[in-house]
Design a protein around this nucleic acid. Structure first.
Lengths: 336, 336
DNA sequence: CTATTCTTCGCATACTTATGCATGTCAAGC
DNA sequence: GCTTGACATGCATAAGTATGCGAAGAATAG
């Protein structure tokens, strides 16, 4: 059915290996035969069959990226720059979806169809990194880390991030601070929760359990959490990531709660949607483009040399002040 | 490096073909050898190499889905149900991104690594469908159609949809109706623009050019369009899709324009984000799940029989009334 | 006990591309 | 004119899996 290099060879009057060499501009084929082969390939509309290539070269030019549901806006935001950077380097991106509740299917990752993998949704106790290393599949952790911290990784300094958020809130004189946290099964979830509690404590404030809510990193968690916390009337709420914050913001709108007049809301990650006018979310994060490029860099170096030393990059997040933070209302009225 | 079926064969003391047959539960291998082979495969952690399979069977079990940037929330919303339905049928989904300004790269689609393709971002004059048919790659158009309308497709009845929107707006007594349209290069953009204008006309209203704005299907178009149209003080604005409407909504918030009190806003598609409390977008659309399942059904039938008659499905959209529509302010005050 | 049938397995090969090695050709140098 | 070398090309084969077909063995029938 499909056109093969043999068909091209026949038409050009050369052998199949010559076709292979000519089309890939390899050394050792004369200008005239190259022209003939080119012409024949163009006439037939020849496209090399990927499976043949992969089998022969033991390499596919494809990189997998494991990520959660796309409907969660954080993942498109991180996948897109990764995709672009990989494309720039000549790799194609294959999306492998992680359903969260069940472990990622191993087979499509280790069946030889991927040259490397970028993991964005790793649980702290995930067996996937171990398994990939055992099988010799190059990979890098992006955003989320594992407990052992012994693999190539590019992550955010969550501890510093939440510390800065705590300082921001206390600097605005907030006393009743609440928080909506992510899952403790992810490094981001755990580090942001424990880090934020510790930061408040060290800075002389506290975070009572009653002002705390936890759930998956989804907008639903944000709206449920806000609904729950609002009854306890905090003056500020830290959300463990932007998606949660957007859910909270959305719920606030439904309840008629004004942000930041009635309550301050701060997120984490600085995803593109946070800058939409309707949200204007004050948040902290690193450049996702930079993070993506770094991770891709780590991966390609790992692919070149499987034995090289483990390399880990921790990026320092920066606050982006928009319009969801302010001083507590009581104080604000006092000042007037 | 990797473990092959030959390794399994050696360990189990059988031939390679027997391994192949045993692991796929094929007929003609005794229960005891099957057990031996299973055991050996498990011990070695054998996973069949996909390239070998693909080459041998001329089939990859992978379906491509061509879609635009993931940061545009419409696409995750349509990709996700497609992915799930394909997974249910035992296919893996490969994402092929369409950069919009340049034609989709043909090679990764026709290099034999895909059994079929779902096109979601086809331009009216796209050559891709023609090329795919010529090469014998099964495909189906989803959401967007081509000018010729001669390929398998599952699309929305845009004409009926915009007609219903026009009736809704006129039923609320709106006089000054504006619109933010999508690109005329896509069937959805064109049909919604011409259809809406015609519907208003037939219903005794009109759509002056000054109350019209066009751009790509992005939230930026929505915010720019709203900014532009707002100067002309319309009482209602129809947005050609939800993403545009969300952008408009966001811009309205920034300008302090109250929705629906100051202006009514209606979208098209009914993507999940439209139901977020902060948006509460009144919109029209079909079930994206149903549309996805239908498209996948058309595709699998095409894969089974390349020669079968072209089949096209047009789905009827339904209005979802939320909280961005109302009567014009002037009339509302009059009534009081 | 032979002839027939069925079951189980291996041999050979196909799918397509890439590459090491051998061969052939032609020009330049002595 | 013969040797040497550079260059261009083809042959043979490798990568891993699946399958048609034949052979061998076992079971059944006569």
């Amino acid at each position: 059915m499909a056109i093969t290099s043999h068909d091209v060879a026949r038409l050009a009057g050369v052998s199949q290996p010559t076709v292979s060499r000519a089309l890939r501009d390899q050394w050792g084929v004369s200008a005239s035969t190259r022209r003939k082969v080119r012409e024949a390939a163009r006439t037939l509309g020849y496209v090399p069959i990927q499976a043949g290539r992969t089998l022969s070269t033991q390499t596919s030019g494809r990189i997998g990226i494991v990520s959660a549901e796309l409907s969660n806006p954080f993942y498109p935001a991180i996948i897109e720059p990764v995709h672009d950077e990989l494309a720039r380097l000549g790799f194609r991106t294959i999306l492998v979806t992680d359903r969260g509740h069940e472990p990622v299917e191993l087979e499509p990752i280790i069946d030889g169809s991927l040259d490397g993998v970028i993991l964005t949704t790793t649980d702290l106790d995930s067996q996937l990194p171990y398994e990939l290393r055992r099988r010799g599949v190059p990979f890098v952790l992006l955003n989320r880390d594992t407990l052992q911290q012994e693999y190539d990784a590019c992550v955010v300094n969550n501890t510093v991030g939440v510390w800065d958020v705590a300082k921001l809130l206390l600097g605005l004189d907030h006393q009743r601070i609440g928080a909506i946290f992510g899952p403790d099964t992810a490094s981001t979830g755990l580090e942001r929760r424990t880090g934020f509690a510790r930061a408040l404590e060290r800075l002389g404030a506290s975070l009572p359990n009653s002002l705390t809510f936890s759930g998956p990193f989804s907008s639903t968690t944000g709206s449920q959490g806000f609904q729950y916390l609002w009854k306890a009337k905090p003056t500020a709420i830290f959300c463990a990531n932007d998606v949660i914050a957007l859910g909270a913001l959305s719920e606030a709108a439904a309840l008629g709660v004004r942000i930041p007049k009635d309550v301050t809301l701060v997120g984490f990650d600085n995803i593109p949607m946070s800058s939409w006018n309707i949200f204007g979310l004050t948040t902290i994060g690193v450049s996702l483009e930079e993070m993506a490029m770094t991770a891709v860099g780590l991966l390609t170096r790992r692919m070149e040399d499987t034995e090289r030393e483990v390399q880990r990059v921790t990026m320092q997040p920066l606050l982006t002040l928009r319009s969801t933070h302010g001083r507590p209302r009581a104080l604000e009225e006092e000042t007037r």
